[in-house]
């Protein structure tokens, strides 16, 4: 459970940093009048904050899965599974998707609607291709005899990739909606915000995938071992 404690510590630091700016030591009973409200004139859109909170929840979810992974790994029946080379390509596709989405965001901000639309479509297609690639990876593994129940490492691999895939499906639904909305209408303030949110979500899911990939390939273990040695 150390992993999740580290995650909690990060969240706690963010919350503490934010609270520190909220004048928690002020004496509200002495302050009458509206001038004590120091919020900025241009508030951050609620959707942005909403996404940030949601990503914290998703982060907690995957961190807990990873905690469980490390705890289960300690038992004697653990045997890592060989990762199909296919996954490298998938990782590249997801990274491509993330980059094009970021590009779409920049183009939308520069008001190059046509370019933004094209890159949205490319990002969507790449996201879809990633999912298909993951299915191929599953098939390659299961036909090589690495079934869900044959070892705990396999179980974790299938479960975590499925969990990640489901989050990508949800992201694709949102991305699809934004793409459709911007297709025959000029990209206005709302659509720009939506594209930006999709890009943030996509970067986050890419980061989650990179962590999971490092976990499955065993590098994460080396890092953890290193940390353990440094600590003891």
């Amino acid at each position: 459970m150390t992993v999740v404690l580290v995650f909690l510590a990060v969240i706690a630091v963010i919350i503490a940093w934010w609270l520190a700016q909220q004048r928690l030591a002020s004496k509200p009973w002495l302050e009458v009048g509206h001038l004590h409200d120091h919020r900025s004139v241009e508030p951050v859109p609620a959707a942005k904050i909403g996404l940030a909170v949601f990503l914290a929840v998703v982060g907690a979810l995957f961190t807990l899965f990873i905690s469980a992974y490390f705890m289960r790994m300690a038992s004697s029946d653990w045997s890592p599974l060989p990762l199909p080379r296919f996954l490298w390509i998938n990782t590249g596709i997801l990274a491509l998707s993330s980059v094009t989405l970021h590009w779409a965001k920049l183009e939308a901000e520069r008001q190059n609607d046509e370019a933004a639309r094209t890159s949205l479509l490319v990002a969507f297609a790449a996201g879809l291709a990633f999912l298909v690639g993951q299915l191929f990876a599953w098939r390659a593994l299961s036909s090589a005899g690495y079934l869900l129940t044959s070892s705990p490492a396999n179980s974790f691999f299938y479960m975590l990739t499925a969990m990640h895939g489901l989050h990508i499906v949800g992201g694709l639904a949102a991305l699809g909606r934004v793409t459709l909305r911007t297709w025959d209408a000029p990209i206005d303030h709302r659509s720009r915000l939506a594209i930006g949110l999709c890009a943030t979500y996509w970067h986050f899911m890419l980061a989650v995938w990179l962590v999971l990939f490092a976990l499955f390939s065993g590098w994460a273990n080396d890092v953890v071992d290193l940390c353990r040695q440094l600590l003891t």
């Binding site: 909220q22 004048r23 928690l24 002020s26 509200p28 509206h34 004590h36 409200d37 904050i49 909170v53």
Partner: peptide, 17 residues
């Protein structure tokens, strides 16, 4: 609930109020 408290407060409603 969280985002409403963060972003939806009326003018003058500081956290400590």
């Amino acid at each position: 609930y969280v985002v409403t408290v963060l972003q939806g407060r009326a003018r003058g409603m500081t956290l400590m109020r």
